[in-house]
Design a protein around this nucleic acid. Structure first.
Lengths: 213, 213
DNA sequence: AGATTTTTGTATCGCTCGCTAAAGAAGGTG
DNA sequence: CACCTTCTTTAGCGAGCGATACAAAAATCT
């Protein structure tokens, strides 16, 4: 069952994790092969044999990132009971992850290719598609909230999704600028205080509030 | 009156504008000397004689950007009569500028150096300081609103400033991802609907649709 | 064992990067 | 005119980039 030739001397997952960390901090263009190979503990030929070229390694690193660090986002959007809880969990979980020690700050999908050059256009589109996917999942969750009755039917789910996607992106920039978790959480407090349910304007009807007004 | 030697054959302001556009679209690292010199219509020695090295040119391009495109930000924060009007004008003016035809989308100060490498660390710090300056001006305007009575004294101006700075950054990412002006304006609508004045406390009203029974 | 297959380290490749020396070109000044 | 100063052009520097040719090394297969 073992492959035929000489076995690989490094752990592919570990090397991929190290590559992800370098891409996360430096971005696609800013991560050089020299820095990648040093962090991964391998030489260029081993990298190219195991992962293909730099772009293939990057794409795989992004998938690894989404599985390891972006997991909370999708989990929040699918498993939380209400739309508001889903958005709140998404924002708070990500804010925690952004400033977690042991890895770069902010969201890799947002930061790893902000400038599009002709050479890295495909990389930019790849990340842009991933961002748009999160936005669409967010809007879908809001629509589900309307269907399930925890969000007023008068709410413009596309607009509300765009707003929280905007906050989502902004939090990443704030985290990369060194803003601490407490400040990020305060921003989220305020961003959630405008949830349609909170004010008297929305036509949310039947919801037994735990505390009496 | 005229300088002694051979006169410069290009307009320095025009060349600086072209350099600004290249840096704006590509970022600091992504803008190569070849692309810069071609856009500016000059050869490398002329560039170096007129502007110094690449980093000096970039810093001057950023100042040029702030004078030409970031002007609305400071104007809104200083000249608008109330804190809310100041923030609203800041966001809307910038959103318009972000998607204006004739130049790259989004804010140059946010996008031109998102990834910090050892080589461009000073550039990153330069832009980070500029971002922090905007944030401090924003918070100062909110404090002025409290002093002048158009903003409740109970409002946490630091937190509110951080929130709108976050929205500010997020709008730039949205613009660069191709979101249109109407969507950006809708996001701003929602972001402003949570202004403390609206609801009396942190929570406020929001109604994205015309009031229905 | 010997042949085969795959990975490994060394030593580059061609290319682009930011940057500059050297000489020609265009003005003013005697 | 010659002379000086400054800008422009040509050409190319050293360094770093992503990516590879090559042969030795380490495993399985016959």
């Amino acid at each position: 069952m073992s492959p035929r030739g000489r076995p690989r001397a490094f752990d592919r997952e570990d090397a991929l994790t190290q590559a992800m960390l370098v891409f996360w901090e430096r971005g696609y263009d800013g991560a050089s092969l020299a820095e990648l190979t040093e962090a991964m503990g391998i030489k260029p030929p081993s990298l190219y044999a195991a992962f293909g070229d730099k772009e293939s390694l990057f794409r795989e690193a992004v998938k690894h990132y989404q599985a390891a660090h972006g997991r909370h986002t999708m989990r929040a959007l699918t498993e939380e009971p209400t739309a508001r809880a889903a958005v709140e969990a998404m924002l708070r979980n990500n804010a925690c992850a952004y400033v977690e020690p042991g890895h770069p700050t902010g969201c890799m999908v947002v930061l790893a290719a902000t400038n599009c050059t002709p050479a890295n256009a495909s990389v930019w589109e790849f990340l842009a598609a991933s961002r748009d996917n999160v936005r669409r999942e967010l809007c879908a969750r809001l629509r589900r909230g309307v269907e399930e009755g925890d969000l007023a039917a008068t709410v413009d789910t596309e607009a509300l999704g765009a707003l929280y996607a905007t906050v989502f992106y902004g939090l990443t920039m704030q985290a990369r600028d060194g803003v601490g978790l407490d400040s990020l959480m305060t921003v989220i407090d305020l961003a959630l205080s405008m949830w349609p349910e909170n004010g008297g304007g929305a036509a949310s009807t039947v919801d037994t509030a735990p505390s009496a007004p």
